[in-house]
Design a protein around this nucleic acid. Structure first.
Lengths: 124, 124
DNA sequence: GTTATACTTAGTCTATTAGCTAACTGTCAA
DNA sequence: TTGACAGTTAGCTAATAGACTAAGTATAAC
């Protein structure tokens, strides 16, 4: 039951659900892109993602200085499908999808520079 | 997303999950039986059940002074099946099932009398 | 009616959790 | 090898949530 509870708790947060919803669309997101999406500090985003990873909802992949997240392939199909259905057509998440398009149009390098206060992303 | 979050939060508690697991076996439980199962005060059990009802996980039926709870018939089938699979064969819940057998062997009247401190349940 | 009683609501306390800043770790580039 | 930097961890604060007791509501028995 602990595993189940851990998964439910990991999903019981608006920001974490937003990330999961984004990963249904994006397949893979860099940590700095998640910071941008949620508009929280890197530390906060890192904690959220740590919870999702430990619960087995998402998995991470490290590439140099960057960490990429995607939905965990071993996630139960029934849970996966329920979530997908629930998060589809949520008006509130529409704004996230638009924002996400802008975010992924920047390379992570540019995005990270932007987060340091430098204006550099060509599409903005 | 609020409804989804509400359901996830309602399920993100050990005691509430125990009740849901019990309702997979029992089909219907009286409030006093839930008090007995969780070993909490009536007020605490009532608050837990209120959350589950409001989230659409369980539904309640009032019969005189008693309130009976069952899994909400409109609960999403995918969520239902995931939960059922997750809660099946959980060693920790085996003790609950044994306890539950004893609990339902008492009529609610007897159980409530017992909760007032009188020893009366014939099977105990 | 009046009283007992099954459950709910209100108020309080404590524990958990989301957010922040600051310090730390590991990787890349000069 | 030194500095810059992406991400994590630690420590703090404020808000949320679970537990209790006590008071309130509604139903049944006398």
């Amino acid at each position: 039951m602990n595993k189940t509870l851990e998964q439910l708790k990991a999903l019981s947060d608006r920001n974490r659900l937003r990330v999961v919803a984004a990963l249904f669309h994006m397949d893979e997101l860099c940590a700095c892109q998640i910071v941008e999406l949620l508009e929280v500090t890197g530390a906060t985003a890192s904690r959220h993602m740590g919870l999702l990873v430990r619960a087995g909802i998402v998995e991470s992949r490290k590439e140099g200085r960057w960490v990429y997240y995607r939905l965990d392939a071993s996630l139960d199909a029934r849970l996966f499908q329920w979530l997908e259905a629930e998060l589809k057509n949520v008006a509130e998440l529409e704004a996230d999808r638009i924002l996400l398009k802008e975010i992924v149009s920047c390379a992570p390098e540019d995005l990270c520079r932007k987060q340091r206060g430098e204006e550099c992303c060509p599409n903005k």
